[in-house]
Simulated scan of single mutants.
Amino acid sequence: MEEPDTAVPEVRRKQELKLFLFIAVLLFPILAIAVVGGYGFAVWMYQLFVGPPGPPA
């Protein structure tokens, strides 16, 4: 059987606040920059091989 959570509610609340701040201030912005940068890099590499968009030749 699993032990019930024995953390004091105040301690758990502080842990959850720290985790939320880590996610909101660090993790999500870093992930957003990585996703947008990765997409931009993929488009750049695609255009390097296929050519830039434009009217058909």
Rank of each mutant, 00 (worst) to 15 (best):
F28A: 11
V8D: 15
P9T: 10
E10R: 09
F22T: 05
I23Q: 15
G38M: 01
P29H: 07
Q47N: 13
M45G: 01
K18N: 10
L17T: 13
P29I: 03
P4M: 02
E3L: 13
L48N: 08
E3A: 14
Q15D: 07
V36Y: 01
I33A: 15
A34K: 03
E10Q: 14
M1W: 01
G40Y: 05
P29T: 02
Q47K: 11
G51H: 09
G38H: 00
F20G: 03
M1I: 06
V36E: 07
L48A: 09
P56I: 09
A7C: 03
P9H: 08
L31H: 06
E10T: 14
I30K: 02
Y46T: 14
L27P: 00
V25E: 08
L48Q: 07
K18M: 10
F49L: 13
I23H: 10
L27T: 01
Y39A: 05
G38E: 00
P4V: 01
E3Y: 08
P9F: 11
G37N: 03
F41E: 02
I30F: 13
R13E: 15
W44R: 04
M45Q: 09
E3F: 07
E16H: 12
L27R: 00
T6P: 01
Q15F: 06
V25W: 01
P29K: 07
P9E: 13
K18Q: 11
R12Y: 06
A7M: 14
I23M: 12
F49I: 14
W44N: 02
E10V: 15
K14F: 08
E3S: 14
P29G: 05
G37T: 04
A24T: 12
A24N: 13
L17D: 12
V36D: 02
V35Q: 03
A42C: 10
L26W: 05
T6M: 15
T6Q: 12
E3W: 00
P55V: 03
G37L: 06
A7V: 04
I30V: 15
A42Q: 05
L21S: 04
F22L: 12
M45C: 04
L27M: 10
F49K: 10
I30Y: 10
F20W: 13
I30A: 13
M45N: 05
R13Y: 07
A42N: 09
K14R: 15
M1V: 11
A24S: 15
V8K: 12
Y46H: 13
K18A: 15
G38I: 02
A32C: 06
P52M: 11
R12W: 01
K14E: 14
A24I: 05
G38L: 00
G40E: 03
A24R: 05
G38S: 07
V36I: 15
L19V: 02
Q47M: 08
P4T: 03
G54Q: 08
P53V: 06
Y39D: 02
G54S: 02
F22Y: 08
V25L: 15
G40L: 10
P9D: 12
P56N: 05
K18S: 05
L21F: 11
L19C: 01
M45A: 14
P53E: 02
Y46M: 05
F41G: 00
V11H: 09
R13C: 04
P9M: 09
L27H: 09
L26A: 14
Q47L: 07
I30W: 04
P9C: 12
V35M: 04
M1H: 12
L17H: 09
T6K: 09
V11L: 15
K18V: 08
G37M: 03
V50G: 03
G54K: 04
G38Y: 00
P53D: 03
L27Y: 14
